[in-house]
């Protein structure tokens, strides 16, 4: 195989890993709670910035990953507990509340971290230059792909092998019944929202390490996240995996062959799927 094509495929896979981590959080929250968290992109930015500050202060990248993820998880948890639950069930207020929150996060981040593009320094031991079958590729990107796979497996285990997962899945199908069974649905909602925030916080640190963070990243990331879950089908984990893989490759090859239209291109499969199957590739009717 051509080296160039191999690298393009690898790029697509790296992108897909980030896309998956981004999309899985959003789709999880949607599946259970029917909430579209439009501050998803702002969470990403904030998680990345927190990770940046940790790396800057300690030089410890794994610590930054944990800190970025956990702080956003906590933040998301608090947001759900104090505000989001008040407007549960209302599409419009939920949408607006999360939008307003994203405005605030983006603006406060600008005040704290400034408008310059920042990037998390990945230590050399995490980023060796790896040569496989004659193709040299940054080792950190393999790590990103690995983290993506690891998160996918963990989510699958949580959803299908734990009691929490069973309750969540039941909640997706029928919320009233779950409450009737004596499961504390409120607690589950908060937990799932926190998990969703954890994932996007992690994505922020990962994305901020191989790309950069700057004002405006939030809306770009939000758009990507929405396209991923619309294409895959909202609420479907499998759908998120498939659409991340499709979009990753599309973006990678688009940039190589039609760079001027690369961003526009990612909307094409979504438009086609929407026209034929509005609920997305693996989505169920809402």
């Amino acid at each position: 195989m051509d080296t160039r094509v191999a690298i393009l495929i690898l790029n697509g896979l790296t992108q897909a890993a980030i896309f998956f981590v981004l999309g899985s959080g959003l789709t999880l929250a949607f599946g259970l709670m029917r909430v579209i968290n439009l501050s998803h992109g702002a969470f990403y930015l904030l998680g990345g910035y927190i990770g940046y500050s940790v790396v800057h202060a300690t030089g410890n990248w794994p610590l930054a990953l944990v800190a970025g993820g956990l702080s956003i998880a906590l933040f998301g948890f608090l947001f759900e507990r104090t505000m989001l639950f008040r407007v549960r069930g209302g599409d419009l207020p939920q949408t607006l509340l999360t939008i307003a929150l994203s405005m605030i996060i983006a603006d406060v981040s600008l005040a704290i971290w400034g408008g310059h593009p920042l990037t998390l320094n990945v230590p050399a031991y995490l980023n060796p230059r790896v040569t496989i079958l004659g193709i040299t590729y940054p080792g950190f990107r393999y790590i990103l792909m690995g983290i993506g796979v690891f998160i996918a497996l963990s989510l699958w285990l949580i959803l299908y092998k734990t009691k929490l997962g069973a309750a969540v899945r039941a909640g997706v199908d029928d919320r009233e019944t779950v409450s009737a069974l004596g499961v504390n649905i409120d607690a589950i909602y908060s937990l799932v929202f926190a998990l969703s925030a954890l994932l996007v916080g992690l994505a922020g640190v990962l994305g901020g390490s191989y790309l950069q963070l700057s004002p405006g990243s939030d809306t770009t990331i939000l758009t990507y996240s929405l396209v991923i879950i619309i294409l895959g089908g909202m609420g479907s984990l499998l759908g998120t995996i498939v659409s991340s893989l499709i979009l990753g490759q599309l973006l990678s090859f688009g940039l190589a062959y039609a760079p001027q239209y690369s961003y526009f291109l990612i909307f094409v499969p979504m438009a086609i799927v929407l026209a034929i199957r509005p609920q997305g590739l693996f989505g169920t009717e809402v």
Binding site: I36, D91, M234, Q279
Partner: peptide, 8 residues
Amino acid sequence: THKIVFLM
């Protein structure tokens, strides 16, 4: 589509 899917 309807509701939240329409929004998206």
